[in-house]
Nucleic acid binder design. Structure first.
Lengths: 137, 137
DNA sequence: ATTGAAAATGAAAATCGTTTTCATTTAGGT
DNA sequence: ACCTAAATGAAAACGATTTTCATTTTCAAT
């Protein structure tokens, strides 16, 4: 266990969820300016390999790493501010298991994501529209 | 409407679903060797823009393009052969709408994906394991 | 404490899919 | 036929991820 690894692991678990390599790299760098990007990346992969996190792809080209919790969850992903809100998927895992069985498919993991706009961004977008409308008149 | 565009559009809709740029490019090239990669890419984006397809990201680094149908569906994605099997998500869209509302989130699109192994791959993997077990003895 | 092998690190480069640039060609209205 | 805007193809740029490689560090065995 190298000090870099310890710092990276600790930082990751402190940050909570949906962390990108860049974000974790920035955080780690604040404490130890000498840590390399690839080391952060490799340790993030390692955390996944040992099963403590998993990759989340939202489709914006950036892989995020999400702590594996006992409780399966889905994501509400704000297209504007990139915020990720979690929700419970209790009701849906049963449905998915049933569907898989029906198709002779052996499920390993699943992903349930909703893309849209969070409360805050929705409001801000409304304000901008209101302003534009006003300006037109 | 250029001949390239016509060819690309036609090819895309012939191919059915979950097509990557490379796959479509290969197919198009078989009919017209002069079509450029970027033209295929641009037209695929165009098809999305006009609402006839949408991007699907499975997390393997390759964007696929899926025809938009009236019936919303999810994907069973085989990690081994990359095959994509669709399933209906009727029961789940209601749940997701409800969850979104609960979180003050304005949904735009959603994604329900299950990763695992299809029937065929599951069988083949079992055979390989059986073989290995036998070899050990 | 010393040693040696294996593992980990940091910097830089390679990779690979996606996206943009730009010079040229083409489509389609007038 | 002409003109302008749009579309194309080749190449380059981009950006995140992944690999390479020389160096350093860890840790177990002495």
């Amino acid at each position: 266990m190298t000090p870099q690894r310890e710092l990276i692991f600790r930082s990751f678990f402190e940050m909570g969820k949906h962390v990108s390599v860049d974000e974790l790299y920035d955080k780690v760098r604040k404490q130890d300016h000498s840590v390399g990007y690839s080391t952060v990346w490799r340790n993030l992969k390692l955390i996944c390999k040992v099963g403590l996190a998993e990759e989340v792809n939202i489709g914006d080209g950036v892989t995020r790493y999400d702590r594996v919790t006992k409780v399966p969850h889905g994501h509400l992903f704000c297209l504007r501010c990139k915020r990720v809100i979690e929700f419970s998927v209790q009701q849906m895992v049963g449905i998915l298991a049933h569907i898989s069985q029906d198709k002779n498919f052996t499920p390993e993991t699943f992903k349930i994501e909703v893309q849209g706009y969070c409360d805050k961004c929705q409001k801000e977008m409304n304000e901008i529209n209101t302003y534009k409308e006003t300006a037109k008149m």
